[in-house]
Nucleic acid binder design. Structure first.
Lengths: 165, 165
DNA sequence: GGTGAAACTTGGGACAG
DNA sequence: CTGTCCCAAGTTTCACC
């Protein structure tokens, strides 16, 4: 059900991605319509699934999560039931924030956030490496984050639409 | 300036991470205080940098971003000026959503979102691979996303505080 | 941290293009 | 079908205890 978005809808999505707590009147002003139709559009976008939720972005380090790690995981068996079994495990581990299935030599990449190295090591050796079917894990500590933008670039989207038109 | 957070502050952060558009009265009810002090706490948390922003989570695939890619980048020189030069480049590329500097064999991991494979290939061969000092790039397409939670786990934080106390 | 009151925002209804 | 105007209910945010 690919509902068509006009330029105003795309602007709404871009604005809410940048500032999800913007009031509806401010949003309406920015996209150039009055508040009621703007709110209707937002509700429609939410119900159609274009907006999946709203989240505060918290500072992990200030909160005491000193350690961020990317873990590249290879499985022994890539049968669909084994893949979903591993994904279910990842969803249950709170240290694992993201789990993406990849093509190529590595099967999954996990983004993890832990309070310190020792709690990550406990997770790695006690949980991840002892999980059935996990064949290899390579971990890389994040030294620093140079860029961490949410979602997608609406500039790229507008470019893409311009060249298709 | 590591301001101390009490249990109510942590609850506020957890709730706003889960639903950043929650009204202040609803938030106040959930954390067990009345609305005005709740709002004061939120403002303080924002100003102290614990909350860095609020964002709508948009559905990349429904918006026409079919392709998500992780790119592992190695540089020829890891001098600080060369590292920051590469980071500046990443911040300027809209297709690159995240750029993390890592320890180990690979220097950076990039998370990219592109409308289709050909526009990603154009970025890869035209921009990334032709950038001065980029020595190696390994890319992996995301087949599917099993988990994509924001920020950190407040369960882990509470556990950590309990065992330190 | 709580209370009360003013200003604003949300979200609906009636209506024009 | 989408935008505008208006209004009641609810929310934010102030001064004060």
């Amino acid at each position: 059900m690919p509902m068509r978005l006009d330029q105003i809808d795309r602007k709404i999505l871009a604005e809410l991605q940048a500032d999800g707590r913007m009031t509806n009147v401010e949003l309406a002003k920015r996209v150039g319509i009055s508040a009621p139709p703007c709110l209707r559009r937002v509700r429609t976008l939410e119900e159609a699934g274009y907006i999946k939720g709203y989240h505060a972005e918290v500072d992990a380090r200030e909160l005491g999560f000193e350690v961020q790690v990317f873990a590249m995981v290879g499985l022994a068996s890539q049968a669909e039931s084994d893949l979903t079994a591993f994904e279910d495990r990842c969803r249950a581990w709170p240290l694992v924030r993201e789990c993406h299935m990849l093509n190529g030599e590595v099967d999954f990449i996990l983004k993890c956030a832990a309070p310190d190295l020792s709690s990550f090591q406990r997770f790695l050796t006690g949980d991840l490496l002892t999980t059935h079917n996990v064949a290899s894990v390579k971990t890389s500590l994040v030294i620093r984050v140079a860029k961490d933008d949410p979602g997608v670039s609406f500039d790229v989207l507008e470019e893409r639409l311009a060249e298709t038109a």
